[in-house]
Design a binder for these strands. Structure first.
Length: 119
DNA sequence: AGCGTGACAAGGT
DNA sequence: GACCTTGCCACGC
């Protein structure tokens, strides 16, 4: 019956992976927004935990997930911090002092544009 | 069960 | 903006 250890990757985890995988290139979203879109309102902290478990063979754009205020969640100067910053910049997202302007690069902004054709 | 910890969030100083 | 405090949720001890 059951397989090895990863017997059952909880639906919640899969839902989170799916949402993160849909963040458009060049855009960012907050942990809370990911949780909400995954049908897990209030579980922002779970998103961070799950992303940490993300298997390497799954090319997940984890670096597009930031805190609600646009700041990178890792300690400045840490290895993951630097990688996230680099990968964001690589795809055109401006990172100033470890922070991204959500109003300019937030995923939500796409919806706003669709709904009422805004810049 | 209680307590500390963390890739969080929101509100106040 | 930088900090602090509360509220949250998931885990481990």
């Amino acid at each position: 019956m059951n397989l090895d250890m990863s017997d059952e990757i909880p639906d919640a985890h899969r839902a989170i992976f799916d949402v993160v995988a849909r963040i458009p290139r060049g855009r960012v979203a907050s942990y809370g927004e990911i949780a909400a879109r995954a049908g897990l309102p209030g579980r922002a902290r779970m998103v961070g935990k799950v992303l940490g478990l993300a298997p390497d063979d799954r090319p997940l754009p984890w670096f597009r997930v930031l805190r609600s205020d646009g700041r990178i969640a890792f300690p400045p100067r840490s290895a993951p911090y630097r990688e996230q910053r680099a990968r964001l910049i690589e795809e055109g997202v401006r990172v100033v002092a470890g922070r991204v302007d959500i109003k300019a690069f937030g995923w939500e902004r796409d919806l706003d544009r669709e709904l009422w054709g805004h810049p």
